[in-house]
């Protein structure tokens, strides 16, 4: 701000810049930043969640003990289940931030292109085109998943404190497997485009890093899909029962 032209402009303009939070939330680039950060929070949670799920292959004792340990993290400094609730609060904030931004940005995008072209052709990759519907599928899945395996509301014969038995129970039904595997496929596609996009939004992407970021997105998508889906497959093939 050294030039005299700018000083003149500064002297005549009285309006101030809004706060950083305001600037972020009011801008399309800012809302995308909210989506990127909340998406990465959820993604890192999923990596841990997937690794925890794999404990099912070590038997009911280990799996149930792990589930119990999740409730005792941080004790005695933290009270029973506090750490878990802390994680839940962060996750809910991330889901809400991600969904509200996605909804508002999508509304804006649709308004910005009211009439399509007469000459139609497929635009962008499948993963890119299915981000919105994939996101809705995932949101519905999360609701079912919590009602099924956390609260047990939609799970007849749910046994609190016995996650191993509950998981085997769910994946012994055909619909439990279908819902889960479809949702995991949607998740893999969502991550494949979402992870790379988050890097672009946060300004980490550039020409030299592009290949690394795309590979990392593919690896994350495949590893998470394989890790999560291995559990219903193991129940179906009676490796876990």
């Amino acid at each position: 701000m050294a030039s005299s032209v700018d000083d003149m402009a500064l002297a005549t303009r009285t309006d101030k810049r809004p706060s950083m939070t305001r600037t972020l939330w009011d801008s399309t680039v800012g809302k995308k930043t909210v989506m990127a950060v909340s998406g990465l929070i959820m993604l890192s949670y999923l990596v841990v969640h997937m690794m925890g799920n794999l404990k099912i292959f070590f038997g009911a004792g280990q799996f149930n003990a792990y589930a119990h340990w999740l409730r005792t993290i941080g004790e005695p400094f933290l009270h029973y289940e506090w750490a878990l609730w802390l994680i839940r609060v962060v996750l809910v904030a991330a889901v809400v931030g991600h969904a509200v931004s996605a909804y508002q940005l999508s509304r804006r995008d649709i308004k910005a292109r009211p009439s399509g072209y007469v000459h139609k052709r497929a635009r962008a990759s499948y993963a890119t085109r299915t981000m919105r519907w994939g996101g809705i599928i995932l949101a519905l899945f999360i609701v079912w998943h919590i009602l099924d395996l956390t609260t047990g509301t939609v799970h007849s014969g749910f046994r609190p404190g016995h996650p191993y038995q509950n998981v085997v129970d769910t994946f012994s039904t055909w619909y439990g497997n279908v819902i889960y595997i479809v949702a995991m496929a949607a998740l893999a596609l969502h991550i494949q485009h979402g992870f790379w996009s988050a890097a672009q939004t946060l300004g980490v992407g550039n020409a030299t890093r592009d290949r690394v970021l795309k590979t990392l997105a593919n690896v994350l998508a495949v590893v998470l899909f394989a890790g999560f889906v291995s559990v219903p497959v193991a129940v179906m093939t009676e490796v876990v029962s």
Binding site: T28, K32, R108, D109, Q200, T201, L202, G203, D210
Partner: peptide, 27 residues
């Protein structure tokens, strides 16, 4: 509208402005 990183813009650009330009601007 906002950017969803479809990459259609950079494919259409007659002057070859690359897609990473958007990431550079975000930064």
């Amino acid at each position: 509208g906002g950017c969803t990183l479809t990459g259609e813009c950079a494919t259409a650009c007659p002057k070859g402005i690359p897609l990473p330009s958007i990431a550079a601007m975000n930064k």
